Amino acid sequence: MKSLTKIIFSPKHIFLVDGLGAAYSATMLGVVLAAFVPFFGMPTAVLYPLAGTAVCLAVYSLSCHFLKPRRWQTFLRGIATLNLAYCAASVVLMSLYWDSLTIWGAAYFVSEKFVVMGLALQEFSLSRKS
């Protein structure tokens, strides 16, 4: 299992993992959660901008994966910083709409923050090693 983690969080794959994760978040926010607002509790006026942001992050990361910039560490620090900013914005929006969130909505947003923050920390670490 440790070797799988090393493969996933390698310079060769980290932008792909980030980009696919951001695309997944965009789909969840803009399609799934938006279709079931009463179940999750977050209004579409919040979900759509978050989904749009996730799309932009996916484009950034996937572009880096396919274009393979020479100074990839700088780009990796960039996406890590943007991921943390996305998390901070999401936490602020969660607090503003906390009363309308259901347990399922809160669970989705809290778990997403843990995943994205963990990824960002791995990205910062990887950008310093190579």
Rank of each mutant, 00 (worst) to 15 (best):
M1C: 08
M1I: 09
M1A: 13
S3L: 09
L4D: 12
T5V: 13
T5C: 05
K6G: 10
K6H: 13
I7M: 15
I7S: 14
F9T: 11
S10C: 12
S10F: 11
P11D: 09
P11S: 10
K12G: 06
H13D: 10
I14T: 10
F15I: 09
F15R: 12
F15Y: 14
V17M: 14
D18T: 15
G19E: 04
G19H: 06
G19F: 07
G19M: 08
A22Q: 15
A23L: 15
Y24I: 15
L29T: 04
L33N: 09
A34G: 03
A34F: 01
A34I: 01
A35N: 10
A35P: 00
V37H: 01
P38F: 06
P38R: 01
P38V: 08
P38D: 02
P38L: 03
F40Y: 12
F40R: 00
F40C: 02
F40L: 03
G41Q: 03
M42W: 05
M42S: 09
T44P: 04
T44K: 14
A45M: 09
A45N: 07
V46P: 01
L47S: 01
P49W: 05
L50N: 12
L50P: 07
G52H: 13
T53M: 14
T53S: 11
T53Y: 12
V55Y: 10
C56N: 04
C56F: 07
C56T: 08
C56Y: 00
L57E: 05
A58G: 03
A58H: 02
V59W: 07
V59D: 08
L62V: 09
L62H: 07
C64Y: 03
C64E: 02
L67V: 10
P69K: 03
R70D: 15
R71F: 07
Q73E: 14
Q73W: 00
Q73V: 06
T74S: 12
F75L: 03
L76N: 00
L76C: 09
R77P: 00
A80Q: 10
T81W: 05
T81L: 08
N83M: 03
A85I: 15
A85Y: 09
Y86I: 04
C87W: 01
C87F: 09
S90A: 08
S90Q: 11
S90D: 05
S90V: 01
V91T: 13
V91M: 13
M94T: 11
Y97Q: 08
Y97T: 02
Y97N: 14
Y97R: 04
W98N: 14
D99M: 02
S100P: 04
S100C: 06
L101K: 04
T102M: 03
I103T: 11
W104Y: 12
A106V: 04
F109D: 00
F109H: 11
V110T: 10
V110F: 09
S111Y: 05
S111R: 02
E112T: 11
E112S: 12
E112M: 12
K113C: 09
F114D: 05
F114C: 09
F114W: 08
V116A: 07
M117W: 13
G118S: 08
G118Y: 05
L119D: 02
L119K: 02
A120M: 03
A120P: 02
L121R: 11
Q122I: 06
Q122M: 14
F124H: 02
S125V: 13
S127A: 15
S127W: 10
S130Y: 06
S130G: 15
S130C: 03
S130L: 11
